[in-house]
């Protein structure tokens, strides 16, 4: 046993730290308890914001969602829980991908949130619902886009780097965040990428 304090200072330090501990537990004794009594408080139970209940696709009041059926979430999903079924339609002479069915298998989802993080349009998110018990596994396969819904007309630019005017801000922030040596070379390729992305669109 190592000795870093003299006998008496060690003794009094010990007494002091025990008193601090006793004070802490006594305070804890009187604090409101954090236990949630689930089935009884089902009405007023509110899960915390970052809780990953199940994947949802928010729709606005006009029954429009933001999904452009790019399929990035499907590619990101490690468990193949997401299946994006899309079709090509011709709008104003341009071919465009359109979402038909967004299938989500709750049973194989591991709530890693990679899909939500990858989504360029913030079309999907996790909600707070957690009562997922069903009698049949097939009921766990959910269609997230509501029937008759369509993609919102002017989707908000999710990544400011894509839009031209916002590109400079994005560059500035990137340059600030990047280490100093990267600063000199960074702007040139970044603008190129931005313009290329614009051209592709």
């Amino acid at each position: 046993m190592y000795q870093d304090k003299s006998y008496f200072s060690g003794l009094f330090c010990g007494i002091k730290s025990i008193c601090i501990g006793l004070k802490t537990t006594m305070r804890e004794f009187f604090t409101p308890k954090i236990t949630e009594q689930y089935p009884e408080n089902r009405k007023e139970l509110k899960m915390f914001d970052r809780f990953r209940g199940s994947l949802t696709m928010p729709h606005n009041e006009k029954n429009e969602h933001k999904c452009v059926a790019c399929g990035i979430c499907q590619m990101q999903c490690p468990n193949d829980s997401i299946n994006v079924v899309s079709e090509m339609v011709e709008v104003d002479g341009k071919k465009k991908k359109q979402l038909v069915r967004y299938e989500y298998n709750l049973g194989s989802c591991m709530f890693c949130m990679l899909c939500v993080n990858a989504c360029p349009h913030d079309a999907i998110t996790f909600d707070q619902s957690f009562e997922n018990a069903v009698f049949d596994r097939s009921k766990l396969i959910k269609q997230l886009n509501k029937p008759g819904s369509k993609v919102a007309e002017k989707p908000m630019p999710a990544r400011p780097a894509v839009a031209k005017p916002a590109a400079k801000d994005a560059e500035a922030s990137v340059a600030q965040a990047a280490p100093d040596q990267a600063k000199a070379e960074k702007p040139q390729p970044a603008t190129d990428e931005a313009t290329e992305a614009k051209a592709e669109n």
């Binding site: 804890e28 308890k33 954090i34 236990t35």
Partner: peptide, 13 residues
């Protein structure tokens, strides 16, 4: 019960 209360729980209920 007291153990639960010291640990910010409710104990058996």
């Amino acid at each position: 019960k007291i153990c639960g209360f010291f640990q910010c729980r409710l104990g058996p209920n």
